[in-house]
Nucleic acid binder design. Structure first.
Length: 594
RNA sequence: CGGGGAGUAGCGCAGCUUGGUAGCGCGCUUCGUUCGGGACGAAGAGGUCGGAGGUUCAAAUCCUCUCUCCCCGACCA
């Protein structure tokens, strides 16, 4: 491709609404163009990279038995009604009516459609296991698209689905995906950590998220350097400290004027935060057996030195939604904001959950449910009892690893992929069953596995760039080589040499972008750095005089001198070496069934 | 949905307080000089000032409504 013909433009300055590096660089390099919040055009170079990433998806999916299909973007509402998600999902799902007034949706994901397909074609255990995947557009009307391609509304996703006869079947398949995902990310030039994750609205038994560690990440991860434990903070556990042994002491009210936070309370009474009980008031939407949804006041007690983990709470009470309670709501159940405790409240109106550590810790200071007063020596069991005592708190830096007890730490990450053991939720809803050897009808056990191509592209840039621009890994770079001609009107021999080398590289099968523009050297070099093509070749009068063409690696600045008549051969070798360097990182990873 | 910010040429911005000919830099076109890390000169093209309504002799500027985009939060297979 000649740069003079390439449909793109580079910019010195990024548009003002681009905040994060990958977004700025993609705009400046002429890769993408935004047409609405979270909706982007992919220009030619971005599309080449997208295709390369997707080809890696295909290779890795095919390698573990996948067969590619394409399912529609537009679905009849009926299928989503069958699974119930038509009713569960809110305005994230784009809905419309067709000309015959039938409800339709834009697919956010394809579990329903896949299960429906499986229902039609899978009849016997002999056909299992099987795996289908597609690389297809999804639309989710996200409440807040942001950060360029990192969080968008319309996006392309590789989504794979496994169909197994039983749990043992998917247990056997799942680790293959685990490995294939590591291969995909490493072959794309980045490393990731796999963390156990919440199964959320998808339901299911086990899930992992593949996280790229970067500060711009929206998720917080809990990691243990000692043993390798890793989990999304939403589900991370930790070994809780042993509470001090003490006999329950007598309840005693204490005046604590204007002391409404745990921090202030501990300071005021000169005690540790771990000697206090924190009350957190939430209101949950909970599904009732009759299908209705009830708003339930939820009262949570965690120890003062701990933080409530809302995901754990949501899962513990199977809530559909959770929101903080308002002051009137809190007062209505007989509590007082800033001075709350379960003692003396309208107990029958609340669902009371107590974290197991708080339940085991003796003589905690809690609120007195009237402004300006707390109570010393509250004890679980004696003074109040819960509807549920469970783990409700968030793991934080310095807590003890649940596996090995060493200190854990937290880090930010971007989710670039996930794998899910779905179970039979969708197959049962859609009626996807098979007959086993005995002729018994059984629901197919499904798994689903997704990676967003655009998000991965953004993450690659996020992790591989410098002040001057992108540093594409050669496996996903739009072009492998950028041939820069420094010819001027007075140096037709340079033009001739560059043209010849360009033709020879094309002939040799090298993916080469040829900067034949009538621009000054500085412009071309700066654009070269911005575009981030891995190998730069410079043909100029200076080198040509000595019969050489200069080479330079974008990723580290390493320089080469190639004899003009050997340049094609040398470049092919360099391309091969660069590819090998990246592919060599895709090594087996032990699957840990954590 | 709550909080904050911004819409003026393709991009970055000024002009608005105090109403009166719409500007600057980059980019783009043409010509000349220059030519190995974002050259210089000259001449050009390009704007319903997000939209609607209002005030006024007169609105980019003042008022009202509205749309869009960005950031933080809520939300998120």
């Amino acid at each position: 491709m000649r740069v003079s013909k390439l449909f793109f433009q580079t910019f010195r300055e990024a548009p003002a609404d681009a905040d994060i590096v990958s977004h700025q660089l993609m705009l400046r390099a002429g890769l993408i163009h935004q047409i609405a919040a979270g909706i982007f055009d992919f220009l030619p170079m971005a599309l080449r990279t997208k295709h390369k990433i997707e080809d890696i998806f295909r290779e890795e999916m095919d390698a573990i038995g996948g067969q590619e299909v394409t399912l529609p973007v537009v679905h009849p509402a009926e299928l989503w009604q069958k699974s119930g998600r038509w009713y569960q999902i809110g305005s994230d799902m784009a809905r419309f009516k067709d000309r015959n007034d039938r409800d339709m949706v834009l697919g956010m994901t394809h579990e329903e459609i896949m299960a429906d397909l499986a229902k039609k074609y899978i009849k016997s255990y002999r056909q299992l296991p099987t795996m289908l995947y597609q690389i297809q557009t999804k639309f989710r009307d996200e409440p807040r698209p942001r950060a360029g391609l990192l969080r968008v509304r319309e996006f392309t996703m590789k989504d794979a689905y496994t169909f197994d006869r039983d749990e043992a079947g998917i247990d056997a398949y799942y680790p293959h995906f685990y490995q294939a995902y590591f291969n995909i990310f490493r072959r794309s030039g980045i490393d990731v950590v796999a963390v156990k994750s919440d199964t959320g609205m998808m339901g299911g038994r086990m899930a992992h998220e593949f996280m790229a560690l970067t500060d711009i990440g929206e998720d917080t991860l809990v990691l243990c350097d000692a043993c390798g434990y890793s989990a999304n903070r939403q589900v991370a556990t930790f070994r809780k400290p042993e509470p001090p042994a003490a006999a329950p002491a007598r309840l005693e009210e204490v005046a604590t004027p204007n002391v409404t936070t745990i921090e202030a309370l501990a300071r005021f009474l000169n005690i540790a935060e771990s000697e206090t009980a924190k009350a957190v008031f939430m209101v949950a939407d909970i599904d009732q057996p009759d299908g209705a949804v009830k708003e339930q006041f939820v009262f949570c007690i965690v120890r003062g030195d701990m933080e409530l983990n809302e995901t754990k709470l949501t899962n513990a009470i199977k809530a559909r939604r959770l929101r903080p309670a308002t002051t009137p709501e809190i007062q209505a159940i007989g509590a007082e904001p800033g001075y709350g405790s379960p003692i003396g409240i309208q107990r029958e109106q609340v669902l009371l959950l107590v974290d197991d550590l708080a339940a085991r810790s003796p003589n905690l200071v809690a609120g007195a449910n009237r402004a300006g007063y707390h109570v010393r020596n509250t004890n679980y069991g004696r003074d109040y009892t819960a509807d549920l005592v469970v783990d409700l708190v968030a793991a934080s830096d310095g807590h003890a690893c649940p596996q090995c007890g060493e200190a854990i730490h937290t880090a930010r990450g971007v989710e670039v992929g996930n794998i899910f053991k779905l179970g039979t939720k969708y197959s049962m809803a859609m009626g996807a069953t098979y007959l086993d050897e005995k002729g018994d009808e059984k629901p197919i056990v499904m798994g689903s596995y997704g990676i967003g191509s655009g998000r991965l592209m953004a993450v690659i840039i996020e992790m591989l760039h410098d002040d001057a621009g992108i540093q594409w890994p050669i496996t996903v770079a739009p072009y492998q080589v950028l041939l820069v001609s420094l010819a001027t009107e007075k140096t037709p021999d340079v033009t001739a040499a560059a043209e010849q080398i360009y033709a020879a590289l094309l002939e040799a099968g090298v993916e080469v972008l040829y900067d034949d523009r009538e621009e000054r050297a500085g412009v071309k070099f700066n654009d070269a750095d911005l575009l981030g093509i891995p190998i730069r070749l410079t043909v100029g009068a200076k080198g040509l005089k000595n019969g050489i063409v200069e080479g330079k690696l974008r990723r580290n600045g390493e320089m080469f001198e190639f004899a003009v008549d050997a340049v094609v051969e040398k470049v092919c070798a360099l391309v091969a070496a660069e590819i090998e360097r990246i592919n060599a990182t895709a090594v087996p990873v032990p699957f840990e069934d954590k």
